[in-house]
Amino acid sequence: MKILETKSLKKYYGKGDNLVKAVDGVDLSIEEGKFVAIVGSSGSGKTTLLHMIGGLDRPTEGKVFIDNKDIHSMDDESLAIFRRRKVGFVFQTYNLIPVLNVWENITLPIEFDLKTVDNEFIEELMRTLNIYDKKNALPNQLSGGQQQRVAIARALATRPAIVLADEPTGNLDSKTSLEVINLLKQSVRKYHQTLVMITHDEKLAQMANRIVRIEDGKLLNREGEPC
């Protein structure tokens, strides 16, 4: 069953001679429960694609369906609510809120939704990610790997349908990177979620069920040609 589908997704910047086609007519569909890696070189448009998939950025043209819902037909308010319920984000720079401790950072999207925090679930999540003992620590008291694990826990906290990870290991050393990806993979499997990860690291991409390649804003087929 498809959890995500994009139709002729385009994102253009500028005009005339300065027109930049960051994403240029991407058609992509992802099955539920899969781990998909989007691979591309720097400036290929992979982050822009991920942002549009997650509803952080509006496309110039085209549509994004998550759970069969056209997310860009929603207004900002509804999109924000949809995002916090259905999409989990993991960023390269962790993007934790510096004044909130680990627990507060993880439960932040649930609190935004004015829902009661399922303490048992969050604690289990933290144990899975091995950060339970850091519950009361502030982000600046954690290592990079620990911060990224907190970010993963935050992404999973609302039990989203899809987790979008933008170069989650970009700031980590190779050993920690491997550890984090394994944890991410293990978690989404455990909680039956779909993972879309951007990376330019071929080794990490190989750990995915499927690899999608992007170049100059276009997806490439198995032969490496734009499709």
Binding site: L56, R83, R84, F89, I97, P109, F112
Partner: peptide, 16 residues
């Protein structure tokens, strides 16, 4: 600004 961006990305609505 960045902090606000992060919060919006994880579901903080404009109203909130």
């Amino acid at each position: 600004t960045r902090e606000h961006g992060i919060m919006k990305s994880i579901g903080l609505t404009k109203k909130q």
